[in-house]
Design a protein around this nucleic acid. Structure first.
Length: 568
DNA sequence: GCCGTTTTCGGCCCGACTGTTTTCAGTCG
């Protein structure tokens, strides 16, 4: 039994305990034990003594060793025999937690969503102590969409939502500062909802403006410091707006950015020093409350550097914080090595893209339109590629300190051949090879295609190496260990494709690449000027894998980059 | 259930909101 499976069973035990109304700290002890395993970099086999991990004691260690020996947990089996199988899914109904569900089961025998619905309709739920008419109505309403709503929303969906909300918030005069917070700010691949932090001296007016301007189908909560709504649209997410006074903004933003685990650690650190952290500030032993100009000042108060939101997981950031200054940031990026123009399926011309790249402050970039195989994307034939070079050349002539390179995003064909001959490739400054077809081939065949590309001396980089689209498709499932070994052997670059639909390589694979010493490029794969902004998401995502700037080829100077390409 | 230089018991991060109450429990993040 592997570590993931063990962690999942510990979580299951926690869920069942919740449904028995067990002690909250006991429940969280099982979750902490799972988190301790998860955060340890070693595999299950490599961990000799689990009790050595903080958070795992006698009880949870016994569960783990039983799982490893027999594959089952007698504790979980016991719980399962006591708790009906229909109860765990009910935890997903907003407003219902373990205790209420336990009560519904104990007093009314409700053991499924179906039974709950009937009981509500018959008015039996509102007769229970602690429940009343409103609760019953709310449960009935939630049951209508039960199982239909997405539990989480992918980052590419939220990106759209957040762009719209930012525009709205910018029009509300009374707002002093605002920022998205929560897991989106931490660049999680998907989030349950959207959190916003807002500071103002006129909370009532801001609240009013929010309710008026934000397109909501339903207002879930509307208090003095919090407005919670469900947005209009298919499968739209919930948005929480938290409103605080300007002096509280930094600590509140930190608080609502999380993660929960990070906040717990911060509070423990504060507690050890006789201080108390809340969203409103840091309370001193004498009862006075400190507030801060910025999150950085808040961290500095605890002798920590600014910890970027992406790193706030509650573990490594407190152990490796001296490394943070080496991590790649958006300011380090000097180039974008993957983008499309009107020559293939892009929306802007070579010149328009070139000017936009200069406006971003880059030193160099590569135009990489699709190759001829990709007919749906108007891929370039060798002849059109040559014609494009004239245009790029003309653009470059007008520049003094910016270099636009000639590249291609060349298809690796289903039979493993490359879409351009070597003599075509030899004419290019930078060659990307990608798979866009026959995703369902067996892994050996996929790997053979990738190997063919990596072996070719003209190929510089593999783009979006797994082909995944977050929440939509898994990609073509390459053997990543092998792919990274080959990239190392042939000295090729692997891409972190920053498009929020992709984020490919993922964090886990980026960590493997970094460990192997394979150079990484963070690219937007922009098909239009406005998509060049994805670089920001990409660099933040790279931080999650603790990638240092010197590992990222597009932080290098133009000279260093060209030198690498020539002497690779 | 876990933890411990205040160590084998007593605390475990902290606060808002809602709906139920009439001072609070449950849920949520």
């Amino acid at each position: 039994m592997n570590k993931n499976q063990v962690v999942q069973i510990l979580e299951k035990i926690a869920i069942y305990l919740e449904l028995q109304g067990a002690n909250a700290f006991k429940i969280s002890a099982y979750r902490k034990a799972g988190a301790a395993l998860e955060n340890d970099p070693r595999s299950m086999d490599e961990i000799e003594d689990v009790t050595a991990l903080k958070g795992i004691g006698k009880g949870t260690a016994a569960v783990i060793s039983e799982l490893l020996e027999t594959g089952v947990s007698s504790e979980l089996e016991q719980l399962k025999s006591e708790v009906p199988v229909g109860l765990p899914p009910l935890l997903k109904i907003p407003g219902l937690g373990g205790k209420k569900i336990a009560k519904l089961y104990a007093e009314l025998g409700i053991d499924s969503a179906e039974a709950l619905k009937t009981a509500c309709e018959e008015g039996r739920v509102q007769q229970l102590a602690g429940f009343a008419k409103k609760t019953e109505e709310k449960i009935l309403k939630e049951l209508e969409t039960f199982g239909k709503r997405s539990e989480t929303h992918p980052v590419w969906q939220l990106e759209e939502v957040i762009r719209k909300l930012d525009t709205i918030l910018n029009t509300i005069e009374e707002i002093e500062q605002f920022s998205v917070a929560g897991s989106y700010r931490r660049v999680k691949e998907s989030s349950k909802d959207v959190d916003y932090m807002i500071s103002t001296n006129e909370a009532a007016k801001v609240k009013e403006a929010l309710l008026e301007k934000v397109d909501a189908v339903e207002v879930i909560a509307s208090g003095d410091t919090k407005v919670s709504v469900i947005l209009q649209g298919d499968d739209a997410p919930n948005v929480d707006f938290r409103i605080v006074e300007p002096i509280q903004y930094a600590t509140a933003l930190h608080h609502f950015t999380g993660s929960k685990e990070h906040n717990v650690r911060m509070r423990q650190i504060a507690k050890d020093r006789g201080e108390k952290i809340s969203e409103y500030g840091v309370e001193q032993a004498d009862g006075s409350v400190l507030t801060f100009e910025s999150e950085a000042a808040f961290f500095n108060h605890f002798d920590l550097p600014f910890i970027p939101p992406t790193l706030r997981v509650g573990t490594t950031e407190f152990e490796r914080y001296t490394d943070i200054e080496n991590l790649v940031t958006i300011e380090d990026i000097r180039a974008d090595l993957h983008m499309h123009t009107t020559w293939s399926d892009g929306a802007h011309t070579v010149e328009e893209m070139g000017n936009a790249l200069i406006a971003k402050g880059y030193d160099y970039a590569v135009i990489t339109d699709h190759s001829q195989y990709l007919k749906v994307a108007n891929g370039l034939t060798p002849e059109r590629l040559i014609a494009q070079h004239e245009e790029i050349h003309a653009f470059n002539k007008k520049q003094t300190d910016f270099h636009l390179l000639r590249g291609t995003e060349m298809d690796i064909l289903p039979d493993g051949l490359l879409d351009f001959d070597d003599e075509v490739l030899a004419n290019l400054d930078f060659v990307i090879a990608s798979i866009h077809s026959s995703f369902s081939q067996p892994q050996e065949q996929i790997m053979e295609r990738l190997h063919n590309a990596l072996k070719n001396p003209h190929v510089d980089m593999i783009a979006h190496p797994t082909g995944r689209v977050i929440h939509q498709r898994d990609g073509y499932n390459p053997d990543m260990e092998q792919l990274i070994a080959w990239a190392k052997q042939y000295n090729k670059i692997l891409e972190l494709n920053a498009n929020p639909y992709r984020l490919d390589l993922c964090v886990e694979h980026l960590e493997m690449a970094a460990k192997a010493g394979v150079p990484v490029a963070i690219n937007t794969d922009a098909h239009a000027i406005e998509q060049l902004r994805y670089m920001d998401t990409g660099t933040k995502y790279a931080q999650k894998a603790w990638l240092y700037k010197d590992m990222i080829v597009n932080t290098w100077s133009f000279e260093k980059f060209m030198d690498f390409l020539e002497n690779r």
